[in-house]
């Protein structure tokens, strides 16, 4: 699943570690999500969306809409 996490993080000038601390997860988790190696659970996806003040769909692209 693709996402805009890296872009959103960069816009705020946050490092992966900064974002990880805000989400209370490890830096590896942020890296794995950004690179699409790991799809977060719904609770974590909501937490990410709330942190950026966006909806989940604004950050994560639905696999069914990717064609």
């Amino acid at each position: 699943m693709t996402n805009r996490l890296r872009v959103l993080r960069a816009e705020r000038g946050w490092s992966q570690q900064d974002l990880a601390e805000r989400l209370e997860v490890s830096r590896q988790s942020v890296n794995a999500i950004e690179t699409g190696r790991y799809d977060p659970s719904l609770p974590l996806a909501f937490k990410i969306a709330e942190l950026f003040g966006l909806s989940i769909e604004d950050i994560f692209t639905s696999p069914s809409s990717q064609g």
């Binding site: 209370e24 997860v25 490890s26 590896q28 988790s29 794995a32 999500i33 790991y38 977060p40 659970s41 974590l44």
Partner: peptide, 9 residues
């Protein structure tokens, strides 16, 4: 482990 990615690993 509260970190779900670490749990998966």
């Amino acid at each position: 482990e509260g970190d779900e990615y670490q749990r998966m690993l």
